[in-house]
Each structure stands twice: as structure tokens, then as C-alpha cells.
Design a protein around this nucleic acid. Structure first.
Lengths: 225, 225
DNA sequence: TAACTTATTGTGATATATCAGAATTATAGT
DNA sequence: ACTATAATTCTGATATATCACAATAAGTTA
């Protein structure tokens, strides 16, 4: 009997990807503060790898605007783009709108059911008033629509832009009012439109859902300044 | 008088970026054929650099799906995604639609004039029946709208997806009918909507412009098979 | 000749070394 | 004490060296 290669479900990531994913997560959650300097030597030592995979991970993060590498100066975490909320949310709204449109064209009844389940969990998280859990549940809902849409470009761009959106949301997490019955209703309307194969309505409602989120966040940021 | 540092307008790119831009261009234009194996050693020798910057450039190209790096096997140029035209064009249509929407919100009369000039050049290129020139002129028109929209995310994603679209178009360049009076008219309607600050109409017309292109290209591909 | 085995090579991944220029600190002169 | 200069450190960029593994070629046996 041949031994199973490694343990199943353990992606056994290489050094570069391990460093990349950890740093990315730290930046999004705010563990690594904006404008914080990143020493590749220190990171290398921390992960027990050499500077090469660290540098490769940093270059990838730089293309995604999570860090900025200033030639002959330093690499640091980028500032949270609190002054570019619409710059981030409008493409996000457009991409998610397309995702809803695509989902409406291919969705199955089982997937509709799953969307309802995810939206119920979202509603529960709101009622329990746990901001972090609300954001996670909202994310799970939208991620599942991306999965149904099954377009790698839409998926990838959406995930990237959303990561920047999440960075801002985490930054204002304390001031954020996550009790939004409107959002639950909007989600239901999105599900209804997608389930009815009404691509136009699905897109329209999804886009509006994101734009409303954008306005709420903008108001929160304005209040903080 | 202090000497000017290097010649102006010469970005003096580093090894990595030099290799990246050249390979990218070669892949889009088809100089590097789909499925062609890329030896980092050979590339390094060709550019007179070491494997390190070549590898960094290849990793960047891999994230953009221009090459695929298969662990412990080989790095090769990806296949031209002729079977994923809608996968590429629908996000492109959505992003360009948003760009038109954003442009409508901020455009100046001088910029409207420039758009008319670019569309006239596009029309002339069509009349001279030079496919390559037509694609370039069309590109210049859409790029200028992206510039007016001034959203780095929309710009970057659009450029990337468009690069994949261009790859397909170059692939079918010979079979492509670039004589499209419809396209010139559509461009004019887009300009009119943007100039009138009618964001909704601008988006709608821009999206339709791309979707029509998509259908034409799809028909061309279907004919070739 | 076909199938199996072994040697060689190619490649991705990583580590280490080097270098130039900027940033920083230390030092000396006023 | 303050400024100017020199030494040092840091960092990005690149080069070179290994290493493990997969693919391929070469050789061997049936």
C-alpha cells in the first residue's frame, strides 16, 4: 500500500507563500501598522528563511499595494486608504454587480438554499452584535456568490479590492455600526433576483448594496475626522 | 551648472522591470508562442543578467497569467484563452463601463475635444484597413477614458484584462474584420454621453461597445474552429 | 525490439555573498 | 553646544551556489 503523500489537505506551502499569506493577513487586520517599516532581515529571521523568499513575498505584496518598496530607502506598510473610499468601493461595487449578474445566469436551487443559509447567519451575527463576526459573515455571503459566478478575473480582482476595503473597515471597526437590517433585506433581494435568473436586477441590487456600504463607511470616516 | 542626472525621460529601469516589460510584450504580440517553454537561464543570458531578476519578472508574469510556473517542471507561456472570451470580456466591459461612468462625472471640454480627435484617428485607421493600427487607435481611445476616470484600480485591472484580450485579438488578427463603422458610431455615442455628464448612459453604451466586440471576436473564433 | 533501470540534465526553490547608495550615527572642529 | 564631515549600518538589487526533484536520455537486460 502506497503511503499518502504528505497529510491530505495540508497544502505544504513553500517559504515564499507562507511569508506572503502571513504578512498579508497581518496588514489587513492591522497587526502590522500602516507606515510601519518592514525589515526583510527581521522577517527572514522570524520565519526561519532567507531574504530571498521574503523579498519575493514583499514584491507580490507591493503589486497589490499592501506594502511600498522605496528604492534605496525602505519597505513599509502602505497607509490605509481612508481618503480613497470611493476609489476602492466603486470598482468593487461594479465587479460584485457583475458577479451577481453571472450568478443569476447559472445558479442552481441548492446554491440558492445555501445563500439563504449564509444570509441567515449574517443576520444572526448582527443580532449578537459582534462586529468582527458580522464582517466575516457578510464576506462569506459575497464570496459564495463569487464562487457561483465562477469567473477567475472577477473573483481575483474582487478579492484584492475587498482586502483593501476590509483594511479600512478593520481600521474603523470600533466606530462601525454593523447593525444594519437594511443589509439583510438587500441580501434577500439579491438572492431573489439571482434565483429568478434576473441578471439585470441582480446586478443593480448588488451594486446598490455595496454603494450603500460605501456611504455608511464614508460617513463613519468623516465623523472620525 | 549641475549636469542633468541621466537623460530625461529615460526611466533607467532595473533588470527585473526590463525583463518583465520585454517578456510581457513578446507574449502579448505572440513573439513568444503559447505553450513555449521559457528557460530562465536562457533569458538571463539573453538580457545579460542573472537568474534572480528573471525569476522575479517571471513570478510577476505568473500572477498575471501570462506564464505558468509548474513546480519542479517548467515555466511556459500560457495558452491564449480563446475558449474564455466571455470570461475576459465581461469583466472588461464592466470595468470600462465604470470608467465611462467616472469620466462622465469629471470630464472637461478640452478632454471631450481630445476624445473626438482620438475617435477620428480610429476612423481613419479603419479606412486605411490596417488591422494593427486599428487596434492601437481603439486602445488609445479607451486608454484616454481610463486616464480621465483617474481610478488606479479600474485602470490597472482594465489594462491587465485588456492585455489578455489583445493577446486573443493578435492571435486572430488575420481573420479579424476591423472595418466596423458601428464601432465609430458607438464611440461617438459614448463621447456624447460623457460630455453630457450622463453617467448612466455612458456606462451603458461603453459596456455595450465591449460586448459587441466580444460577440464579433467570438464569431471569428467559432469560424476558425 | 521492448521494457526496465540508471545516469544526466533542467528547473524551481532557497541560501548566501556582494555591492552601491541612502540613512544614520559617531566624531571632530569651530 | 552646534555644525560639518567621516564612518557605519541598512537596504534594495543582483549574482552565485546548492539542493531536491522531475523529466529525459542512456544504457542494460530479457
Amino acid at each position: 500500500m502506497p503511503l499518502p503523500k504528505k497529510t491530505p489537505n495540508s497544502p505544504e506551502l513553500n517559504a515564499k507563500d507562507r511569508v506572503y499569506q502571513q504578512l498579508r493577513s497581518w496588514i489587513i487586520t492591522g497587526t502590522l501598522a500602516p507606515k510601519e517599516k518592514i525589515s526583510d532581515q527581521a522577517i527572514a529571521a522570524l520565519f526561519g528563511v532567507s531574504r530571498t523568499p521574503v523579498r519575493e513575498a514583499l514584491q507580490l505584496l507591493a503589486t497589490q499595494e499592501f506594502v511600498e518598496m522605496i528604492p534605496r530607502s525602505a519597505t513599509r506598510v502602505t497607509a490605509v486608504a481612508t481618503d480613497r473610499i470611493s476609489t476602492i468601493y466603486r470598482p468593487l461595487a461594479a465587479l460584485q454587480g457583475l458577479a451577481a449578474e453571472l450568478a443569476a445566469e447559472t445558479i442552481t436551487t441548492a446554491e440558492v438554499e445555501q445563500l439563504n443559509v449564509l444570509n441567515q447567519r449574517y443576520e444572526q451575527a448582527q443580532q449578537q452584535n459582534q462586529p468582527q463576526a458580522v464582517l466575516l459573515a457578510d464576506n462569506a455571503f459575497h464570496d459564495y456568490i463569487l464562487k457561483i459566478a465562477a469567473n477567475p478575473y472577477v473573483n481575483e480582482f474582487s478579492q484584492l479590492v475587498d482586502a483593501h476595503a476590509q483594511r479600512i473597515e478593520n481600521f474603523y471597526l470600533a466606530q462601525l455600526n454593523v447593525q444594519q437590517p437594511d443589509a439583510v433585506r438587500e441580501h434577500n433581494e439579491i438572492i431573489t433576483a439571482i434565483a429568478a435568473d434576473d441578471a439585470v436586477a441582480a446586478r443593480e441590487r448588488m451594486t446598490q448594496n455595496w454603494l450603500r456600504s460605501m456611504h455608511l463607511l464614508q460617513a463613519c470616516v468623516d465623523r472620525a475626522n
